[in-house]
Design a protein around this nucleic acid. Structure first.
Lengths: 221, 221
DNA sequence: ACCTGAACACCGTTCAAGT
DNA sequence: ACCTGAACACCGTTCAAGT
Protein backbone atom coordinates (compact mmCIF):
# COMPACT_ATOMS: atom_id res chain seq x y z
CA UNK A 1 0.00 0.00 0.00
CA UNK A 2 2.48 2.65 1.11
CA UNK A 3 5.24 2.60 -1.52
CA UNK A 4 7.69 3.79 1.11
CA UNK A 5 6.93 0.81 3.32
CA UNK A 6 9.44 -1.38 1.61
CA UNK A 7 12.32 0.96 2.16
CA UNK A 8 11.58 1.46 5.85
CA UNK A 9 14.58 -0.29 7.26
CA UNK A 10 13.50 -3.55 8.89
CA UNK A 11 14.88 -3.78 12.35
CA UNK A 12 17.76 -6.10 11.55
CA UNK A 13 16.91 -9.58 12.80
CA UNK A 14 19.88 -10.67 14.77
CA UNK A 15 20.60 -14.09 16.13
CA UNK A 16 19.64 -17.51 15.01
CA UNK A 17 17.03 -17.69 12.27
CA UNK A 18 13.71 -19.34 13.28
CA UNK A 19 13.14 -22.96 12.32
CA UNK A 20 9.46 -23.08 13.26
CA UNK A 21 6.84 -20.35 13.34
CA UNK A 22 3.89 -19.67 15.59
CA UNK A 23 1.61 -20.46 12.66
CA UNK A 24 3.29 -23.78 12.13
CA UNK A 25 2.86 -24.66 15.79
CA UNK A 26 -0.80 -23.66 15.73
CA UNK A 27 -1.50 -25.62 12.57
CA UNK A 28 0.05 -28.72 14.09
CA UNK A 29 -1.88 -28.22 17.32
CA UNK A 30 -5.09 -27.96 15.33
CA UNK A 31 -4.35 -31.23 13.58
CA UNK A 32 -3.61 -33.02 16.83
CA UNK A 33 -6.68 -31.68 18.62
CA UNK A 34 -9.05 -32.40 15.77
CA UNK A 35 -7.90 -35.95 15.69
CA UNK A 36 -7.64 -36.86 19.33
CA UNK A 37 -9.28 -34.13 21.40
CA UNK A 38 -7.68 -31.71 23.81
CA UNK A 39 -6.52 -34.61 25.95
CA UNK A 40 -4.12 -35.77 23.29
CA UNK A 41 -2.48 -32.38 22.85
CA UNK A 42 0.73 -32.39 24.85
CA UNK A 43 3.67 -30.10 24.41
CA UNK A 44 5.90 -33.08 23.82
CA UNK A 45 3.63 -34.63 21.22
CA UNK A 46 3.28 -31.27 19.54
CA UNK A 47 7.04 -30.79 19.46
CA UNK A 48 7.44 -34.13 17.75
CA UNK A 49 4.76 -33.13 15.25
CA UNK A 50 6.66 -30.02 14.17
CA UNK A 51 9.99 -31.81 14.34
CA UNK A 52 11.35 -29.88 17.26
CA UNK A 53 11.83 -30.09 21.01
CA UNK A 54 9.21 -29.34 23.64
CA UNK A 55 11.08 -26.27 24.79
CA UNK A 56 11.26 -24.70 21.36
CA UNK A 57 7.48 -24.29 21.54
CA UNK A 58 7.76 -22.00 24.50
CA UNK A 59 9.44 -19.48 22.26
CA UNK A 60 6.31 -19.17 20.18
CA UNK A 61 3.55 -19.48 22.79
CA UNK A 62 3.63 -18.50 26.42
CA UNK A 63 2.36 -21.82 27.73
CA UNK A 64 -0.20 -24.50 27.02
CA UNK A 65 -3.12 -22.35 28.09
CA UNK A 66 -2.23 -19.62 25.63
CA UNK A 67 -1.90 -22.26 22.96
CA UNK A 68 -5.45 -23.44 23.58
CA UNK A 69 -6.79 -19.89 23.58
CA UNK A 70 -5.07 -19.17 20.29
CA UNK A 71 -6.57 -22.33 18.87
CA UNK A 72 -9.99 -21.13 19.97
CA UNK A 73 -9.62 -17.66 18.45
CA UNK A 74 -8.55 -19.31 15.30
CA UNK A 75 -11.54 -21.61 15.15
CA UNK A 76 -13.98 -18.86 16.02
CA UNK A 77 -12.58 -16.59 13.33
CA UNK A 78 -13.38 -19.19 10.69
CA UNK A 79 -17.03 -19.63 11.63
CA UNK A 80 -19.75 -18.79 9.15
CA UNK A 81 -22.26 -16.21 10.26
CA UNK A 82 -25.57 -17.27 8.78
CA UNK A 83 -28.05 -14.65 7.63
CA UNK A 84 -30.60 -14.21 10.39
CA UNK A 85 -34.35 -13.91 9.87
CA UNK A 86 -36.15 -10.64 10.61
CA UNK A 87 -38.67 -12.03 13.08
CA UNK A 88 -36.97 -11.77 16.49
CA UNK A 89 -38.15 -15.10 17.86
CA UNK A 90 -36.92 -16.91 14.75
CA UNK A 91 -33.74 -14.88 14.89
CA UNK A 92 -33.15 -16.05 18.44
CA UNK A 93 -33.67 -19.70 17.58
CA UNK A 94 -31.56 -19.47 14.43
CA UNK A 95 -28.65 -17.82 16.24
CA UNK A 96 -28.78 -20.43 19.01
CA UNK A 97 -28.86 -23.25 16.47
CA UNK A 98 -25.87 -21.70 14.70
CA UNK A 99 -24.00 -21.48 18.00
CA UNK A 100 -24.83 -25.08 18.67
CA UNK A 101 -23.69 -26.19 15.23
CA UNK A 102 -20.46 -24.27 15.57
CA UNK A 103 -19.72 -26.19 18.75
CA UNK A 104 -21.09 -29.54 17.69
CA UNK A 105 -18.67 -29.73 14.81
CA UNK A 106 -15.75 -29.46 17.16
CA UNK A 107 -16.07 -31.21 20.47
CA UNK A 108 -12.66 -30.08 21.63
CA UNK A 109 -13.79 -26.47 21.52
CA UNK A 110 -16.22 -27.00 24.36
CA UNK A 111 -13.54 -28.42 26.61
CA UNK A 112 -11.57 -25.22 26.22
CA UNK A 113 -14.62 -22.97 26.33
CA UNK A 114 -15.78 -24.31 29.64
CA UNK A 115 -12.32 -23.79 31.06
CA UNK A 116 -12.25 -20.11 30.08
CA UNK A 117 -15.88 -19.16 29.46
CA UNK A 118 -17.14 -17.69 26.24
CA UNK A 119 -15.33 -17.56 22.99
CA UNK A 120 -13.17 -14.86 21.60
CA UNK A 121 -14.62 -11.86 19.80
CA UNK A 122 -15.84 -13.99 16.95
CA UNK A 123 -17.94 -16.11 19.29
CA UNK A 124 -19.57 -13.09 20.83
CA UNK A 125 -21.53 -12.66 17.65
CA UNK A 126 -23.88 -15.40 18.83
CA UNK A 127 -24.39 -13.85 22.23
CA UNK A 128 -24.98 -10.45 20.64
CA UNK A 129 -27.68 -11.75 18.37
CA UNK A 130 -29.39 -13.90 20.95
CA UNK A 131 -29.53 -11.14 23.54
CA UNK A 132 -30.60 -8.59 20.97
CA UNK A 133 -33.34 -10.82 19.60
CA UNK A 134 -34.57 -11.50 23.14
CA UNK A 135 -34.85 -7.76 23.75
CA UNK A 136 -36.69 -7.38 20.45
CA UNK A 137 -39.09 -10.05 21.72
CA UNK A 138 -39.95 -7.83 24.66
CA UNK A 139 -37.53 -8.84 27.43
CA UNK A 140 -35.64 -6.27 29.45
CA UNK A 141 -31.89 -6.33 28.78
CA UNK A 142 -31.39 -7.98 32.16
CA UNK A 143 -33.87 -10.76 31.46
CA UNK A 144 -32.45 -11.09 27.96
CA UNK A 145 -29.02 -11.84 29.41
CA UNK A 146 -30.57 -14.38 31.75
CA UNK A 147 -32.37 -15.95 28.82
CA UNK A 148 -29.11 -16.13 26.90
CA UNK A 149 -27.49 -17.77 29.90
CA UNK A 150 -30.20 -20.43 30.11
CA UNK A 151 -29.76 -21.16 26.43
CA UNK A 152 -25.99 -21.33 26.89
CA UNK A 153 -26.32 -23.76 29.81
CA UNK A 154 -28.65 -25.95 27.78
CA UNK A 155 -26.42 -25.81 24.70
CA UNK A 156 -23.13 -26.41 26.46
CA UNK A 157 -24.66 -29.23 28.49
CA UNK A 158 -25.98 -30.89 25.35
CA UNK A 159 -22.62 -30.66 23.60
CA UNK A 160 -20.61 -31.86 26.57
CA UNK A 161 -22.86 -34.75 27.51
CA UNK A 162 -23.38 -35.98 23.99
CA UNK A 163 -19.67 -35.75 23.25
CA UNK A 164 -18.95 -37.80 26.37
CA UNK A 165 -21.59 -40.29 25.24
CA UNK A 166 -19.92 -40.67 21.87
CA UNK A 167 -16.54 -41.17 23.50
CA UNK A 168 -18.04 -43.94 25.62
CA UNK A 169 -19.68 -45.55 22.62
CA UNK A 170 -16.30 -45.52 20.89
CA UNK A 171 -14.58 -47.83 23.34
CA UNK A 172 -16.93 -50.76 23.20
CA UNK A 173 -16.74 -52.23 26.69
CA UNK A 174 -20.16 -51.92 28.38
CA UNK A 175 -20.57 -48.71 30.34
CA UNK A 176 -21.60 -48.31 33.91
CA UNK A 177 -24.93 -46.98 32.69
CA UNK A 178 -25.66 -50.05 30.62
CA UNK A 179 -24.96 -52.33 33.54
CA UNK A 180 -27.30 -50.30 35.73
CA UNK A 181 -30.09 -50.20 33.15
CA UNK A 182 -29.85 -53.90 32.49
CA UNK A 183 -31.36 -54.77 35.87
CA UNK A 184 -33.61 -52.00 37.08
CA UNK A 185 -35.79 -52.63 40.08
CA UNK A 186 -39.41 -52.56 38.90
CA UNK A 187 -40.59 -51.87 42.43
CA UNK A 188 -38.66 -48.68 43.07
CA UNK A 189 -38.10 -47.47 39.50
CA UNK A 190 -41.19 -48.63 37.61
CA UNK A 191 -41.14 -45.94 34.95
CA UNK A 192 -37.52 -46.43 33.99
CA UNK A 193 -37.93 -50.19 34.09
CA UNK A 194 -40.85 -49.95 31.66
CA UNK A 195 -38.69 -47.92 29.29
CA UNK A 196 -35.81 -50.33 29.71
CA UNK A 197 -33.84 -50.90 26.55
CA UNK A 198 -35.44 -48.00 24.73
CA UNK A 199 -33.58 -45.58 27.02
CA UNK A 200 -30.36 -45.91 25.04
CA UNK A 201 -32.09 -45.33 21.72
CA UNK A 202 -34.16 -42.43 22.98
CA UNK A 203 -31.29 -40.60 24.61
CA UNK A 204 -29.10 -41.10 21.56
CA UNK A 205 -31.55 -39.12 19.42
CA UNK A 206 -30.76 -35.54 18.59
CA UNK A 207 -33.41 -33.48 20.33
CA UNK A 208 -31.45 -30.26 20.63
CA UNK A 209 -33.81 -28.21 18.52
CA UNK A 210 -36.90 -29.56 20.25
CA UNK A 211 -35.54 -28.62 23.67
CA UNK A 212 -34.31 -25.27 22.44
CA UNK A 213 -37.74 -24.35 21.12
CA UNK A 214 -39.36 -25.41 24.37
CA UNK A 215 -36.88 -23.31 26.31
CA UNK A 216 -37.41 -20.28 24.09
CA UNK A 217 -41.17 -20.74 24.32
CA UNK A 218 -40.96 -20.63 28.07
CA UNK A 219 -38.46 -17.77 28.23
CA UNK A 220 -40.25 -15.30 26.01
CA UNK A 221 -43.27 -13.33 27.21
CA UNK B 1 -29.84 -62.52 62.67
CA UNK B 2 -29.07 -66.16 62.00
CA UNK B 3 -27.73 -67.51 65.31
CA UNK B 4 -25.73 -70.06 63.39
CA UNK B 5 -23.95 -67.37 61.41
CA UNK B 6 -21.29 -66.85 64.02
CA UNK B 7 -20.25 -70.47 64.10
CA UNK B 8 -19.98 -70.78 60.34
CA UNK B 9 -16.25 -71.19 60.08
CA UNK B 10 -14.70 -68.09 58.51
CA UNK B 11 -12.58 -69.05 55.59
CA UNK B 12 -9.24 -68.79 57.37
CA UNK B 13 -7.58 -65.54 56.30
CA UNK B 14 -4.10 -66.49 55.33
CA UNK B 15 -1.23 -64.22 54.55
CA UNK B 16 -0.35 -60.75 55.66
CA UNK B 17 -3.06 -58.91 57.60
CA UNK B 18 -4.40 -55.76 55.89
CA UNK B 19 -3.07 -52.38 56.98
CA UNK B 20 -5.60 -50.30 55.09
CA UNK B 21 -9.19 -51.05 54.07
CA UNK B 22 -11.24 -50.12 51.06
CA UNK B 23 -13.38 -47.92 53.31
CA UNK B 24 -10.33 -46.10 54.55
CA UNK B 25 -9.18 -45.48 50.99
CA UNK B 26 -12.62 -44.22 49.96
CA UNK B 27 -12.90 -41.94 52.97
CA UNK B 28 -9.52 -40.42 52.20
CA UNK B 29 -10.44 -40.01 48.52
CA UNK B 30 -13.64 -38.24 49.54
CA UNK B 31 -11.67 -35.82 51.70
CA UNK B 32 -9.20 -35.06 48.94
CA UNK B 33 -11.84 -34.60 46.28
CA UNK B 34 -14.08 -32.41 48.42
CA UNK B 35 -11.18 -30.14 49.12
CA UNK B 36 -9.48 -29.85 45.76
CA UNK B 37 -11.74 -31.36 43.11
CA UNK B 38 -11.20 -34.46 41.02
CA UNK B 39 -8.07 -32.92 39.54
CA UNK B 40 -6.28 -33.08 42.87
CA UNK B 41 -7.03 -36.75 43.41
CA UNK B 42 -3.98 -38.73 42.39
CA UNK B 43 -3.12 -42.23 43.43
CA UNK B 44 0.15 -41.00 44.84
CA UNK B 45 -1.46 -38.22 46.84
CA UNK B 46 -4.10 -40.63 48.09
CA UNK B 47 -1.48 -43.16 49.13
CA UNK B 48 0.30 -40.49 51.17
CA UNK B 49 -3.05 -39.56 52.74
CA UNK B 50 -3.62 -43.09 54.04
CA UNK B 51 0.03 -43.54 54.94
CA UNK B 52 0.81 -46.14 52.34
CA UNK B 53 2.31 -46.56 48.91
CA UNK B 54 0.55 -45.94 45.59
CA UNK B 55 0.58 -49.59 44.73
CA UNK B 56 -1.10 -50.70 47.94
CA UNK B 57 -4.23 -48.92 46.72
CA UNK B 58 -4.51 -51.21 43.75
CA UNK B 59 -5.24 -54.03 46.14
CA UNK B 60 -8.43 -52.33 47.27
CA UNK B 61 -9.66 -50.74 44.04
CA UNK B 62 -9.17 -51.91 40.48
CA UNK B 63 -7.93 -48.59 39.16
CA UNK B 64 -8.58 -44.89 39.37
CA UNK B 65 -11.80 -45.10 37.38
CA UNK B 66 -13.31 -47.61 39.75
CA UNK B 67 -12.29 -45.40 42.62
CA UNK B 68 -14.23 -42.48 41.15
CA UNK B 69 -17.28 -44.64 40.49
CA UNK B 70 -17.24 -45.91 44.06
CA UNK B 71 -17.00 -42.35 45.26
CA UNK B 72 -20.04 -41.51 43.19
CA UNK B 73 -22.13 -44.43 44.46
CA UNK B 74 -21.21 -43.40 47.91
CA UNK B 75 -22.28 -39.81 47.42
CA UNK B 76 -25.50 -40.79 45.69
CA UNK B 77 -26.42 -43.20 48.46
CA UNK B 78 -26.29 -40.39 51.00
CA UNK B 79 -28.62 -38.05 49.15
CA UNK B 80 -31.88 -37.01 50.72
CA UNK B 81 -35.00 -37.80 48.73
CA UNK B 82 -37.37 -34.94 49.36
CA UNK B 83 -41.10 -35.57 49.56
CA UNK B 84 -42.59 -34.71 46.19
CA UNK B 85 -45.83 -32.80 45.66
CA UNK B 86 -48.90 -34.51 44.20
CA UNK B 87 -49.37 -32.18 41.25
CA UNK B 88 -47.26 -33.65 38.41
CA UNK B 89 -45.92 -30.35 37.08
CA UNK B 90 -44.80 -29.31 40.55
CA UNK B 91 -43.43 -32.78 41.09
CA UNK B 92 -41.34 -32.45 37.95
CA UNK B 93 -39.92 -29.10 38.97
CA UNK B 94 -39.27 -30.21 42.54
CA UNK B 95 -37.44 -33.36 41.42
CA UNK B 96 -35.31 -31.39 38.97
CA UNK B 97 -34.46 -28.81 41.62
CA UNK B 98 -33.50 -31.62 44.00
CA UNK B 99 -31.29 -33.15 41.32
CA UNK B 100 -29.69 -29.78 40.76
CA UNK B 101 -29.11 -29.22 44.46
CA UNK B 102 -27.58 -32.65 44.84
CA UNK B 103 -25.07 -31.76 42.16
CA UNK B 104 -24.52 -28.14 43.08
CA UNK B 105 -23.31 -29.11 46.53
CA UNK B 106 -20.56 -31.19 45.05
CA UNK B 107 -18.93 -29.84 41.93
CA UNK B 108 -16.61 -32.81 41.63
CA UNK B 109 -19.55 -35.12 41.13
CA UNK B 110 -20.38 -33.57 37.78
CA UNK B 111 -16.87 -34.11 36.46
CA UNK B 112 -17.27 -37.82 37.10
CA UNK B 113 -20.88 -37.94 35.98
CA UNK B 114 -20.13 -36.48 32.60
CA UNK B 115 -17.36 -38.99 32.13
CA UNK B 116 -19.66 -41.93 32.78
CA UNK B 117 -23.20 -40.62 32.29
CA UNK B 118 -25.88 -40.83 34.92
CA UNK B 119 -25.41 -41.66 38.52
CA UNK B 120 -25.61 -44.98 40.20
CA UNK B 121 -28.92 -46.48 41.25
CA UNK B 122 -29.44 -43.81 43.86
CA UNK B 123 -29.25 -41.08 41.23
CA UNK B 124 -31.82 -42.76 39.05
CA UNK B 125 -34.46 -41.75 41.54
CA UNK B 126 -34.40 -38.28 40.01
CA UNK B 127 -34.76 -39.56 36.47
CA UNK B 128 -37.58 -41.87 37.53
CA UNK B 129 -39.56 -39.08 39.11
CA UNK B 130 -38.96 -36.56 36.37
CA UNK B 131 -39.94 -38.97 33.60
CA UNK B 132 -42.92 -40.24 35.55
CA UNK B 133 -44.15 -36.74 36.32
CA UNK B 134 -43.77 -35.79 32.66
CA UNK B 135 -45.94 -38.75 31.67
CA UNK B 136 -48.48 -37.73 34.30
CA UNK B 137 -48.49 -34.30 32.67
CA UNK B 138 -49.61 -35.88 29.43
CA UNK B 139 -46.42 -36.64 27.51
CA UNK B 140 -45.87 -40.00 25.87
CA UNK B 141 -43.10 -42.04 27.52
CA UNK B 142 -40.85 -41.24 24.55
CA UNK B 143 -41.39 -37.50 24.81
CA UNK B 144 -41.06 -37.73 28.56
CA UNK B 145 -37.56 -39.19 28.18
CA UNK B 146 -36.69 -36.43 25.72
CA UNK B 147 -38.01 -33.87 28.19
CA UNK B 148 -35.87 -35.41 30.92
CA UNK B 149 -32.87 -35.23 28.61
CA UNK B 150 -33.41 -31.54 27.93
CA UNK B 151 -33.65 -30.88 31.65
CA UNK B 152 -30.52 -32.92 32.22
CA UNK B 153 -28.59 -30.99 29.55
CA UNK B 154 -29.70 -27.71 31.06
CA UNK B 155 -28.89 -28.80 34.60
CA UNK B 156 -25.51 -30.34 33.85
CA UNK B 157 -24.56 -27.33 31.74
CA UNK B 158 -25.49 -24.95 34.53
CA UNK B 159 -23.48 -26.89 37.10
CA UNK B 160 -20.42 -27.31 34.89
CA UNK B 161 -20.28 -23.74 33.64
CA UNK B 162 -20.95 -22.13 36.97
CA UNK B 163 -18.39 -24.38 38.65
CA UNK B 164 -15.81 -23.36 36.04
CA UNK B 165 -16.75 -19.74 36.64
CA UNK B 166 -16.17 -20.08 40.34
CA UNK B 167 -12.82 -21.73 39.73
CA UNK B 168 -11.82 -18.78 37.55
CA UNK B 169 -12.99 -16.28 40.13
CA UNK B 170 -10.84 -18.08 42.69
CA UNK B 171 -7.53 -17.38 40.99
CA UNK B 172 -7.70 -13.65 40.73
CA UNK B 173 -5.80 -12.86 37.54
CA UNK B 174 -8.20 -11.32 35.00
CA UNK B 175 -9.83 -13.88 32.74
CA UNK B 176 -9.89 -13.92 29.00
CA UNK B 177 -13.56 -13.02 29.15
CA UNK B 178 -12.94 -9.90 31.21
CA UNK B 179 -10.31 -8.69 28.80
CA UNK B 180 -12.67 -9.20 25.88
CA UNK B 181 -15.61 -7.50 27.60
CA UNK B 182 -13.49 -4.54 28.61
CA UNK B 183 -13.27 -3.25 25.04
CA UNK B 184 -16.26 -4.36 23.02
CA UNK B 185 -16.79 -2.86 19.62
CA UNK B 186 -19.96 -0.77 19.76
CA UNK B 187 -20.33 -0.98 16.01
CA UNK B 188 -20.47 -4.73 15.63
CA UNK B 189 -21.68 -5.72 19.09
CA UNK B 190 -23.92 -2.86 20.19
CA UNK B 191 -26.15 -4.85 22.51
CA UNK B 192 -23.30 -6.43 24.45
CA UNK B 193 -21.46 -3.13 24.56
CA UNK B 194 -24.52 -1.45 26.09
CA UNK B 195 -24.63 -4.12 28.77
CA UNK B 196 -20.91 -3.84 29.35
CA UNK B 197 -19.90 -4.19 32.98
CA UNK B 198 -23.30 -5.53 34.03
CA UNK B 199 -22.59 -8.75 32.14
CA UNK B 200 -20.43 -10.14 34.94
CA UNK B 201 -23.03 -9.34 37.60
CA UNK B 202 -25.92 -10.67 35.57
CA UNK B 203 -24.28 -13.93 34.63
CA UNK B 204 -23.14 -14.49 38.20
CA UNK B 205 -26.75 -14.52 39.41
CA UNK B 206 -28.40 -17.84 40.12
CA UNK B 207 -31.16 -18.18 37.56
CA UNK B 208 -31.38 -21.96 37.53
CA UNK B 209 -34.94 -22.12 38.75
CA UNK B 210 -36.10 -19.41 36.36
CA UNK B 211 -34.64 -21.24 33.38
CA UNK B 212 -35.94 -24.58 34.59
CA UNK B 213 -39.48 -23.28 34.87
CA UNK B 214 -39.26 -21.78 31.41
CA UNK B 215 -38.01 -25.06 30.01
CA UNK B 216 -40.74 -27.06 31.75
CA UNK B 217 -43.34 -24.57 30.56
CA UNK B 218 -42.24 -25.10 27.00
CA UNK B 219 -41.86 -28.86 27.27
CA UNK B 220 -45.25 -29.69 28.71
CA UNK B 221 -48.39 -29.69 26.57
C1' DA C 1 16.80 -14.57 18.63
C1' DC C 2 16.01 -19.01 18.60
C1' DC C 3 16.91 -23.71 19.83
C1' DT C 4 18.72 -27.73 22.70
C1' DG C 5 19.48 -31.06 26.67
C1' DA C 6 19.37 -32.07 31.06
C1' DA C 7 16.72 -31.71 34.98
C1' DC C 8 12.69 -31.12 38.28
C1' DA C 9 8.53 -32.37 40.04
C1' DC C 10 4.87 -34.66 38.79
C1' DC C 11 1.35 -38.64 36.65
C1' DG C 12 -1.01 -43.96 36.40
C1' DT C 13 0.28 -48.47 36.27
C1' DT C 14 3.08 -53.04 35.79
C1' DC C 15 6.05 -56.33 37.58
C1' DA C 16 8.86 -59.00 40.77
C1' DA C 17 9.86 -59.50 45.19
C1' DG C 18 9.11 -59.46 50.18
C1' DT C 19 6.24 -60.70 54.60
C1' DA D 1 -3.31 -61.85 51.18
C1' DC D 2 -1.37 -57.79 51.38
C1' DC D 3 2.30 -54.57 50.85
C1' DT D 4 6.77 -52.53 48.94
C1' DG D 5 10.32 -50.60 45.62
C1' DA D 6 12.01 -50.08 41.47
C1' DA D 7 10.81 -49.23 36.98
C1' DC D 8 8.24 -47.72 32.67
C1' DA D 9 6.21 -44.46 29.94
C1' DC D 10 4.33 -40.42 30.37
C1' DC D 11 3.25 -35.03 31.79
C1' DG D 12 4.37 -29.28 31.85
C1' DT D 13 7.90 -26.29 32.73
C1' DT D 14 12.55 -24.10 34.35
C1' DC D 15 17.23 -23.26 33.72
C1' DA D 16 21.80 -22.93 31.65
C1' DA D 17 24.05 -23.47 27.72
C1' DG D 18 24.80 -23.49 22.72
C1' DT D 19 24.49 -21.21 17.82
Amino acid sequence: MDPMAQSVPQRPRVGRPPRISREEVLAAARRVVEEGGVGSLTMRRLAAEVGSTPMALYHHVKDKEELLLLLLDDYAAGLARPALPEDPRERLVTAALAMHDALAGCAWVVEVLVADDLMSDAGLWYAENIVDAAVACGLTPERAVHAYRSIWYYTAGEIIIRAAGRRRAADDRPTHRERVFADLDEETLPRLASIGGRWATLTAQDTYRQGLEALVEGLLP
